[in-house]
Amino acid sequence: MGNLLKVLNSPDLEQGPNFFLDFENAHPSENERAVWDNVAQVLSRAEQVLAALQAYQGAGPHIREAISHPSDEEQQHKAWEAVCPLVSKLKSFYEFSLQLESALHNLLTVLTAPPLSPTQHLEREQALAKQFAEILHFTLQFDELKMTNPAIQNDFSYYRRTLSRMRMRSAKSLCDVDVTNEMANRMSLFYAEATPMLKTLSDTTSRFVAENKNLRLENTTDCLCTMAGVCKVMLEMPEYRGRFASPETESFCLRVMVGVIILYDHVHPVGAFARTSKIDMKGCIRVLKEQPAANVEALMNALRYTTRHINDESSCKQIRSMLQ
């Protein structure tokens, strides 16, 4: 399919770029290789993290027994031994979010660098754009799983409540979990978020803009809105969808489109929902609504509840109505 292809020039598409971005077969050029290798090393763990989160069962029965029998030392010990390995998993998820944060920063540095336009970057660094998309795809999958698993918050809350008391007892009562108070505080803030990975990426993108004061804001926001436009056009045009080798690429594009909209809304001063937004929000929402409801409800909720400007006075009322 080649790199980023300008395959249509339809007058009916008044907003957004008319591009096909090969999310399935993009390979890094020599110029991309150093950054690509760094990000690829992080992304190589993504499927493992998702599988571990999907299999996360929690220590609910042990915790309930321990709470119901506070003087029964055996029940307390069983609950503690059940929670500790789970906290190790939660720590690994949190540490992976920090790696994603660094990877996203590296990608934004390249994809927003002047003097190239966002379109030129997507054309020339397609493999890096694909990695950016993979980070967003993972992020929305992770947050969808986390939101439907209350055991995560319950386990970690029990761990924090019990930690000080257990440390006062015999060392044999402790399992080998290296979670300092500082680490526990950071993890607590992370898991308190309904969508912790999205919050991490949004904060990273906002911090990237704040730290790069010599870089025009439009370099970042145009990169995000161009990616949203690419995904929208690829999904709504049969000529483009027909190029997908796998049916999973459609859901991939949907998640990426929603992800970049959320990042744009957190970074742009008036957000993605204002009439002046460069993102065709009506078109993006229409594309979402055309998909089977079971596939997009979580994505619609992400737009409703994790964006920053949806309820602003400057936001288009028609767009808000479409999301209701």
Rank of each mutant, 00 (worst) to 15 (best):
150 P>D: 08
151 A>C: 10
25 N>I: 03
223 C>I: 03
292 P>S: 07
213 K>S: 14
2 G>L: 05
292 P>I: 03
59 A>V: 02
49 V>E: 11
61 P>A: 08
127 A>Q: 03
46 A>V: 05
108 L>M: 08
302 A>Y: 02
222 D>S: 12
183 M>P: 04
211 E>V: 09
248 E>K: 14
209 V>N: 04
321 S>K: 13
217 L>Q: 11
14 E>A: 08
212 N>G: 12
133 A>Y: 05
117 S>R: 04
285 I>R: 04
258 V>I: 06
51 A>D: 15
178 D>V: 12
323 L>H: 09
20 F>W: 10
102 S>P: 01
5 L>C: 08
279 I>T: 02
315 S>L: 12
163 L>Q: 07
173 S>I: 02
176 D>G: 06
54 Q>G: 12
198 L>W: 00
265 D>Y: 04
221 T>D: 08
58 G>S: 03
96 F>H: 15
149 N>T: 10
138 F>S: 00
56 Y>D: 03
82 A>I: 04
154 N>S: 11
169 R>P: 03
93 F>P: 01
306 T>L: 00
63 I>Y: 02
278 K>T: 09
83 V>A: 02
205 T>D: 03
278 K>Y: 06
176 D>H: 12
318 Q>Y: 15
36 W>H: 15
118 P>R: 00
108 L>I: 03
208 F>C: 11
162 T>V: 10
139 T>G: 06
9 N>R: 13
